[in-house]
C-alpha cells in the first residue's frame, strides 16, 4: 500500500482528521456490542496511516447501519469512510471467501441470490410466472451484464491474489 490511507480518504471527500476520539461511534455500534469491532480505533488507525487496518477482519463486521455516522458529533462520514477502507482492502486482496462467492454468483446469473426450484413452485402457487421478469429470463440482458462487469474488470478484482 504505497498511498497514504489518510490521503486516499481525503481524496474521496472523507476527512477523518476532525475525529476527537470521543467513542460515540463505538458506543453506538450494534455489531460492536457482540464483536471486536471498535470503530473509534479503526478511525484512529486510518488517521495514523496504519495500513494493518486493511487486513483487520473487524472491517467486515460492520453492517453499514450508519448509526455511528448519524451520531458523530463532528459530522464525520464514518460509515462511508469504512466502506472506502474496505475497497482499499479488496484492492490489496483482502476478501472473505463468502464474499468472493456472492460476487461470482452475480457474475454468473446477475443476482446475488439466484432463483431456486422451491421458489419457482411458490411463484406458481401465487399465480406468478415461474421465472421473474429480471435478467434471469433474458439471455441477452445477462450477456449485457456480463460484458459490463468485465469492462469494469470486476472478474479480475475478485480473483484470488
Amino acid at each position: 500500500m504505497s498511498e497514504k490511507l489518510l490521503e486516499v480518504l481525503k481524496t474521496a471527500g472523507l476527512d477523518v482528521l476532525s475525529c476527537m476520539q470521543c467513542g460515540t461511534c463505538t458506543g453506538s455500534c450494534p455489531s460492536g456490542r457482540h464483536t471486536g469491532l471498535n470503530t473509534r480505533r479503526i478511525l484512529r488507525d486510518a488517521r495514523k496511516n496504519r495500513t494493518e487496518v486493511l487486513s483487520d477482519d473487524a472491517l467486515w463486521l460492520c453492517t453499514t447501519c450508519y448509526t455511528c455516522q448519524e451520531r458523530c458529533p463532528r459530522g464525520i462520514p464514518i460509515t462511508d469512510a469504512l466502506l472506502e477502507l474496505r475497497r482499499l482492502a479488496v484492492r490489496e486482496g483482502f476478501m472473505l471467501p463468502e464474499h468472493r462467492k456472492v460476487s461470482e454468483t452475480v457474475l454468473e446469473c446477475g443476482h446475488a441470490v439466484p432463483l431456486d426450484e422451491e421458489t419457482k413452485k411458490k411463484r406458481e402457487e401465487l399465480g406468478l410466472e415461474p421465472i421473474p421478469e429480471t435478467v434471469q429470463k433474458y439471455p441477452e440482458a445477462l450477456e449485457e451484464l456480463k460484458t459490463l462487469l468485465k469492462t469494469c474488470k470486476f472478474d479480475k478484482l475478485i480473483a484470488e491474489k
Binding site: R86, S103, V106, G110, A112, E133, V135, A141, L157, I158
Partner: peptide
C-alpha cells in the same frame, strides 16, 4: 432485464 441492484453491503464495499 433488471439485475441485482447491486447489493450495497457487498458491491459498495468492493
Amino acid at each position: 432485464g433488471a439485475s441485482c441492484c447491486p447489493a450495497p453491503g457487498v458491491f459498495k464495499s468492493f
